[in-house]
Amino acid sequence: MVDGPVPVVRRALSGVLAASLLGLFVLPVVALFVYAGGGGIVAAARDAGFRISIEFTLLASGLAVGLGLLTGVPLGYLLARHRFPGRTVVESVVLMPVAIPHLVVGIALLLLFAPSAPLGRLTAALGIPIFDSIAGVVLVMVYVGASYVVLTSELAFRSASPGALDAARSLGASPTEAFVTVTLPSAARGIVTGALLMWARGISEVGGFLILAYAVTPSPPWGGPVTSTASVYVYNLYGIEGLPGATSAAALLVLVALAIFVTVRLLDRTGFAWARGGWFS
């Protein structure tokens, strides 16, 4: 069947529009790498301060994703499988952090957790200071990113076969066994996607850190020197050295983020064959 002129024009228009958006996504990153150049990226990698800030960011974002999963997956399950009064309110609250400007997030958290605020004094007394600490960075990351875990988990649990859980129960699985052996693995891909989005959101955050955890002082589990998140480090370089200094560090940060992102996506696309080979398959 030969396409008439209208479908051809429609396809061409769709192609141009899609390519425009993809170009918008890709071109700035390409410009970053071209501008930084291989030498610039290597030089950024040799910057001990930046390397420390990347290590810190990976640690903090890992902790944040862990906390996000611990709290977000049960909430996603609750929203997917249960009807209860106030459910719509809960769903709106889950979406709220996505809509709040991140500087505002920092200010709001500072009001609660500043060293002089009651909650700040309480957490400090418990050995978990929030202001200018790794706990503050983690808190911001959870605030701005955990919504993604809740939303994708909810979707994953909702789309899982309703019969599979019943079948598992009838075949001898207690509610806990059925959840662990059937429900959770069925939703694993959605949960991993949510974790990945949350992680990406966390390492790209700046505004909240500028207010709540600009210069991170050592406190467990961060035993390194005073540092900042990698995004804040790049922001500082831009302020001090201008574009040339910031570009190389920014390009290296993008490389690290892309490497992790692509690795997880590849594992996801192969259907977690690594996991299926063992406990899941």
Partner: peptide, 25 residues
């Protein structure tokens, strides 16, 4: 008794197969 103690061989309308497990498992 709860469902898992009733000694059932239940097949739901969507079959309830576990998509993350091979046929053997």
């Amino acid at each position: 008794l709860p469902p898992h103690r009733r000694g059932l061989g239940f097949v739901p309308p969507d079959l309830g197969l576990f998509g993350h497990r091979r046929v053997r498992r």
